[in-house]
């Protein structure tokens, strides 16, 4: 069976390997460094010979690549296994075209275009490059939900979470907590196999996973030091 390590040490200790075909919601408040977590998950895939497809609704494709470079995560040797779907540059009216590892989408409302780019990257990695372990990292669903209604996004996710399952890949999707009503989160949760939850308390952030292990893991405090996630074994009271 295909399994994946998230690449976030404290979380990996608590969760163990994640079964291939899993879709995980990563939900937490703004400024809780969710992007550091998801970037590390994508990087872990690249380092271990997998492919990583990254959908960015907040940063241009180049900025995503730059983040890795600036934070000492050298991806030069792995760039042919990285695919970034940039939903930002065209929305800002920048006159930039596609390059091998960055495909630009006209806007986050263009779910058809995002969908086609995911398919194209999967085809390239699986069929042309023979890489049959893939991660899809979406940062973030909240932006997509700002442009399209819940039902539309649900249909889009329904298609792609099933494709992740069929391909035995790993999907991780960021959601901003506090930005959507409870019904939206509950509706979307139906599509996921597990949730990584982040909460803030007394200016500290705590993280746990639900649904990926028999019981929810314990809340542990964490902090991000640059690009590194430090999950402390200090439990929440």
């Amino acid at each position: 069976m295909v399994e994946y390590k998230l690449g976030v040490s404290g979380l990996d200790d608590a969760i163990g390997d994640v079964r291939g075909g899993s879709n995980i919601m990563l939900i937490g408040p703004p400024m809780s460094k969710k992007e550091v977590i998801i970037n590390n998950i994508a990087y872990q895939g690249l380092m271990t010979g997998e492919s990583s497809i990254f959908i960015s609704t907040g940063e241009s494709g180049e900025s995503i690549i730059q983040w890795f470079e600036e934070n000492g995560k050298d991806i030069n040797g792995y760039i042919d296994r990285l695919g970034v779907i940039d939903c930002v540059s065209k929305t800002l009216g920048l006159n930039v075209g596609d390059i091998d590892h960055i495909k630009r989408i006209s806007s986050p409302v263009n779910l058809t275009g995002i969908s086609v780019s995911i398919t194209n990257f999967f085809e390239e990695f699986w069929m042309k490059k023979g890489i049959q372990k893939s991660r899809l990292c979406v940062d973030s669903l909240s932006t997509i939900l700002m442009y399209s209604n819940l039902q539309t996004v649900f249909r889009f996710l329904h298609v792609h979470t099933r494709r992740i399952k069929t391909a035995g890949a790993l999907g991780v999707y960021i959601i901003e907590s506090g930005m959507h009503d409870e019904q939206t989160i509950t509706t979307l949760k139906q599509l996921f196999d597990g949730v990584i939850e982040i909460e803030e308390e007394n200016e500290s952030y705590f993280i746990r996973s639900v649904g990926l292990t028999q019981k929810p893991t314990k809340w542990c405090e964490y902090e991000a030091n640059g690009a590194e996630m430090i999950v402390k074994h200090k439990e929440r009271r």
Binding site: T112, G113, S115, V116, I118, T119, N120, F156, R163
Partner: peptide, 9 residues
């Protein structure tokens, strides 16, 4: 009538 993920536009 385009299946999702297929380049149809």
């Amino acid at each position: 009538y385009i299946h999702p993920g297929v380049e149809g536009d």
